[in-house]
Structures are given as C-alpha cells and as structure tokens.
Design a protein around this nucleic acid. Structure first.
Length: 414
RNA sequence: GGAGAGAUGGCUGAGUGGCCGAAAGCACAGGUUUGCUAAACCUGCGAGCGGGUAACUGCUCCGAGGGUUCGAAUCCCUCUCUCUCCGCCA
C-alpha cells in the first residue's frame, strides 16, 4: 500500500512506477474513484455535522427531532454509496505495488538482475561432483522418499548428522545475529489473513499459502509475517528504533507449478527452515539498514566459507511490496552455478502502512520502514554439502560449525 | 472441554443516555525554581481523515459488527479476543 496523497499530488509518479513494473492497474480510474469517494465523504460529513448540531437542540426544541429524522434518511443513502466507493477503492489499492527505489535495474525476470560483486574462491574438484540429492541419499542424511510418504512430494527429512548439521547452522546463525544486536524470537507458525495482507503476501502471493480449513489462519510462509505483524497498530517510541528482530521458523509454501531441473533435491520444497532478519527503522535510515542486513548475510556466508555473488534485483523479479531487493546467490558445486540463498528487501512503508506501525514524532506519528532479509535457510546447508564434498561422497563440516556439531565430517556408513 | 470476569488514550485506570474524545495517575514535551548522578511546581499532551495561508475548524474512533434513540463509551443483540479457576495435556 502506498500513500494516496502521492496519487493526488503526483499521479504521473505512480503511473511511471506502474509502467516500470508492468502493472496493469488503471491509475486514472483509481484516481477517479478516490476523487468521487472523497467528494461524497465531504457531503456525508456535512450532513453529520448538521445532525449533530440539531441533536443538541432537541431537549428544548421538539421540532428539531423531526429535522434530524429527515436528515438521517438522506444520510443513510449517501453513507451507503460512500462505503461502496471506499470498498472499491480499497480493492484497487490492495494491488498497488510499492514505489521503486531509483537504482532498481529494469528487466522482466531474474536475467535482468545486476551483479554487484563476486566473493570467494570457487572450489575445484578433481573428481566427478555429486549434487546434494545424490549426496543426501549416499550419506542417509536427506530423505525425500519418506517425506513424500508421510506428507507429500516436496516435504523431506533431515536425518542423523544431516539434522545435527542443520541444527548447528541455525543455532550458530541465531547467535551471530544476537551478537549483532538482534532480539531473538520464537513465533507462531500460523497467522491470520490480516497479518498476511499487512506484510504484502496477500493478495500478491495468495496461491503460495497453505490455508487452514475453516479458520482465519494460514501456515506462515516466513517468520517475517509474524515478526512484522508483531507490531501491528503499535506506536513505537523513536528512541527504541531501530528494532532488530530475528527468528528461526519453518516456512510453508505451496510452490504451485514449479518443477524441473531446478527443483531436483530439496532446493525448492513446500517446507523449509529459515533464520530471518527484520528491522524496523526511521524512514531516512532504511537504505542504511538494508545494507546492514546484506552485510550480515555476506558475513555469515564468508564465515561458512561459501563463495557467492550479490545481485541487485531488477524490477521484474522484485515483487510488488518491495522497493529494492538484494539477492545473494551462493555457488552450488553439484549444480554447477550460482543459486539464490538469501533475499533482502527494503519494504519502505509498504508493510507499516498496511499494518499501521508508526513511531512518535513531535509533529505527529509517522510510519516506520521495514527491512526483511534472510539470514540462512536449508539452501545454505545444500551449498555446504555440494561445496564441501569429498571424493568418497563424505562432507567436511565448515569450521565455525564444528564446535556445535561435535564432528568435522559426515561419512557414508560402511 | 467446564465455570466466571473483562476489553476505554503510549501504559494504569475512572466513567451506566446529552455538559465525555473521555477523570486521575504514570510516561512524554516545554517552562519556572532550588541546585547537582535529581526533586518540586506550572503548562501542554489520544489516533485517523478533511477544510483553511493561519488562528481555527468539521467528521470518525472507548474490542468488531448490527440495533434502540432526536442523541450511545454508557441500553439491546451477535461475534472476536483476553484474563482467572477447574479438567486435560507437550
């Protein structure tokens, strides 16, 4: 959701933004509905003022009561019309995308993303490399077969030392973020529609969510939803900003219609696990904290010894709620290429406006900005497997995780 | 699952039909004074949406939605949520 004042004052800005995003919303129609709605609202308010004034005379002027009754009839009609227009307006604005930052590249899909830098040495192998699916089966640490049996295709088990490695990675990451000023949360794994709408997952990604039957609840697609929703309707004290939050949670996505080579193994699944970074900050600070989250992501990957590249995500790959997004793509030796492992979005006031998250200012309240960024997910484990593999299929554990795993290598059972 | 209580401004908490957008306290902001890791006193201070250069001013909001009434935080109905006790339970 964006500020409708911008629509009224600078409609061309909105049009250009929608054009860049190939967003088909008819802005002129939107403007007209907004205008009609506001004209009518003023009429309604004038009638209400008249009604209120007369009501105060009623105790000693019985005639006023009759006048009030007449006004009420007229008022009811206008109120109904106004409510209709307002609902129509809300419906139209629900799909309005966020304003893009100036330095977002053009492009229709991820091929338009702009690489900012490559970091780390690619591993060199003098043996045929395996991908994580093969390694996972060899080492008996990933079980997709039984995931499908027990749940569905797209669900899987981490098992044995694989599960231990996963727990180590997630715990280590949470500790790193706590050390960097983040408050750790454990959040609900379900959220109501208002929360999903407010965080921008509805209506834009409606077919991605697992809805609970007969409940106003869906499984969370990310703890971003519950962490940002945490402050819905709050007025934050400015001295508490920025608020840095992190959580580890499972993430559920229906992933309607994504198959093929890119989906081999557990790269794209219905349930994955993520440590998230969320920052609430003053509007002028959001670019700075967007960079901070990126720096955290890079730090973690460097500590883990994973080569990666950073890309500035283009318009077509950005998503409507975001104003700017950085992805990090790690090197996957088994896959033989860079693939997305983190995603870091500056949502500016898009979420805070929908969720009514403000902070106090001398001249009134103002919407905060929110940053939402991955720290690590299972995909990082996949990268570790593929990049740290040995000729016999065993996997060396990255050094920083060894104190937590208690072992430095995962080997196949003889 | 059973029984009861409740939902008011950033927080605590008064308020049972018009003088209530709402007492009081806390917190916060500005000021005065005494001075010294602070206290006392004074003043201001809910949110949202409009109109006006401005002073100022209109509308809405006391969990949500409906109803009664000339008039609802206050009465009625429905729903949601929270808390307490009991039961069950990781």
């Amino acid at each position: 959701m964006i500020d409708l004042k911008i629509l009224r004052e600078n409609i061309e800005l909105i049009k250009r933004n929608c054009a860049r995003r190939s967003c088909p919303i008819d802005i002129d129609a939107l403007f007209a509905v907004d205008n009609d709605s506001r004209v009518l609202l003023r009429e309604v308010e004038e009638l209400r003022a008249e009604r209120n004034r007369l009501s105060n005379e009623c105790r000693d002027n019985p005639e006023a009561r009759e006048q009030v009754k007449r006004i009420k009839t007229e008022l009811a009609q206008k109120e109904e019309k106004q409510a209709f227009l307002k609902a129509k307006l809300d419906q139209m604005t629900a799909f309005l995308p966020n304003l893009l930052a100036d330095d977002v590249p053009d492009g229709l899909d991820d091929s338009g993303n702009v690489e900012l830098r490559k970091v780390g040495q690619l591993p060199v192998f003098d043996f045929p490399v395996r991908d994580h699916q093969e390694l996972g089966e060899m080492l008996d640490i990933i079980d997709t077969q039984r995931g499908a049996k027990v749940a569905q295709t797209g669900f899987y088990y981490w098992k044995g030392k694989g599960a231990q490695l996963a727990q180590a990675l997630f715990f280590w990451t949470q500790q790193q973020l706590v050390n960097r000023g983040f408050t750790l949360f454990m959040t609900p794994c379900v959220a109501k529609e208002r929360t999903l709408f407010g965080t921008g997952y509805l209506p834009f990604f409606a077919d991605e969510t697992y809805q609970l039957k007969d409940e106003d609840l869906a499984l969370i697609g990310t703890s971003e939803q519950t962490l940002v929703g945490y402050h819905a309707d709050d007025i934050l004290e400015p001295e508490t900003l920025p608020l840095r939050y992190t959580a580890f949670s499972p993430c559920f996505r229906t992933e309607a219609g994504s198959y093929g080579r890119a989906a081999r193994g557990i790269f794209r699944v219905h349930q994955f696990h993520k440590v998230e970074q969320i920052i609430f900050c003053r509007p002028e600070d959001s670019p700075k904290f967007h960079e901070e989250c990126l720096a955290n992501e890079e730090y973690l990957l460097q500590q883990l010894g994973l080569p990666y590249r950073v890309v500035n995500v283009c318009v077509g790959d950005l998503g409507a709620p975001g104003s700017k997004k950085y992805d990090i793509e790690a090197w996957f030796a088994g896959f033989g290429g860079y693939r997305e492992v983190t995603s870091n979005t500056n949502l500016t006031a898009f979420q805070s406006r929908r969720l009514n998250i403000r902070f106090r200012q001398p001249e009134g309240t103002q919407f905060v900005h929110t940053i939402s960024a991955t720290a690590v997910t299972d995909r990082v484990l996949v990268a570790i497997m593929e990049n740290y593999q040995q000729p016999d299929g065993s996997i060396v554990v990255p050094e920083v995780l060894r104190p937590l795993t208690g072992f430095d290598r995962i080997e196949a059972k003889k």
